[in-house]
């Protein structure tokens, strides 16, 4: 379990990183936190000839909160974002999800942007980017561009990021006032990749639901957002109408997800599980929406 030989590049600026990425092309991989990449290299499941280590690049390690979004630089560790009081105040969903990302030791090193660029269907943060209608900021040889989440994720472990491009930040969009969120997942062991997970956002206006969204972990190929508004809009959380609407939600979730089975859980089990997790998450989100208003 030793990696094949590679050349280690240590650029100190975004420009230099992009320039190196342009030179090495498809034979290069970006190294940020390395929590997925290094095991892959050690098991020789991938043998890139070049590692472009961005850890010395300046200006990528900040979390910024604006009225519209929480902007997270490419070198912000999961743990840093998880503990950011400003980010939590602006978008509690981030911390709600991040505490489910593996274990503290991994969160101390792994980066949120890296996990989004890795685009693992079992990753929590790609789903959160989708649920928050987020954007990826990309630097390339011909300058910068912004990619909406829906254009970013192409497939499992596949994004629209070109070989010579670097994701320098992501922006998680903030929800309207009166929105409560919740994230829940079920893993075989604490901190493992989830068998299924779900993040939900419920907006309550004048005591009734005026918007509800869900996004899923491990049960869809690429992150996708399910609009639960048609099922829940107009319902008062906790009412009989709400309870009946949850059955409609369950139906919608079952139809939306496309889980695959593996040695840990079958597709049928995951479908049941994510449906139940969604049922359990929505009341919590609605409660928090009520608390906010």
């Amino acid at each position: 379990m030793k990696p094949a030989p590679f050349v280690h590049h240590a650029p100190v600026s975004v420009e230099e990183a992009v320039s190196v990425l342009g030179e090495v092309g498809h034979d290069g991989k970006v190294l940020a936190g390395g929590q997925s990449l290094i095991p892959i290299l050690n098991m020789r499941l991938a043998s890139p000839g070049h590692l472009v280590d961005i850890n010395r690049v300046t200006g990528l390690d900040s979390v910024e909160v604006t009225p519209e979004a929480v902007r997270v630089g490419a070198l912000v560790r999961h743990a840093g974002l998880e503990r950011s009081a400003e980010a939590y105040a602006a978008l509690p969903l981030l911390r709600q999800a991040l505490v489910n990302v593996a274990h503290p030791a991994i969160r101390n090193r792994g980066t949120t942007v890296g996990s989004i660029a890795h685009a693992d269907a079992a990753g929590e943060m790609p789903a959160i980017l989708a649920l928050t209608d987020g954007v990826v900021e990309v630097a390339g040889p011909s300058g910068s561009r912004e990619v909406a989440w829906s254009d970013f994720f192409l497939g499992a472990l596949e994004t629209s990021l070109a070989a010579e491009e670097l994701a320098v930040a992501v922006r998680f969009g903030r929800f309207p006032a009166g929105t409560g969120t919740a994230f829940t997942e079920a893993a075989r062991r604490h901190g493992d990749y989830a068998m299924a997970g779900v993040g939900v956002a419920v907006t309550v206006t004048d005591g009734v639901v005026s918007g509800a969204l869900a996004s899923f972990v491990s049960v869809t190929d690429v992150p996708s957002v399910l609009d639960l508004g048609p099922a829940l809009d107009g319902a008062e959380p906790g009412s009989g109408e709400w309870d009946a609407a949850l059955d409609t939600v369950a139906e919608a979730v079952r139809g939306h997800v496309e889980p695959e089975g593996d040695i840990h859980a079958s597709a049928d089990y995951r479908r049941m599980l994510v449906t139940e997790l969604t049922r359990r998450a929505l009341p919590r989100a609605a409660d928090r929406a009520g608390a906010d208003t």
Binding site: P39, M43, R188, R189, H190, G191, D192, Y193, I263, H264
Partner: peptide
């Protein structure tokens, strides 16, 4: 691997 062979953690 210890990713897929589920030896319990302290939390289990």
């Amino acid at each position: 691997s210890f990713m897929d062979f589920l030896m319990p953690y302290a939390s289990e």
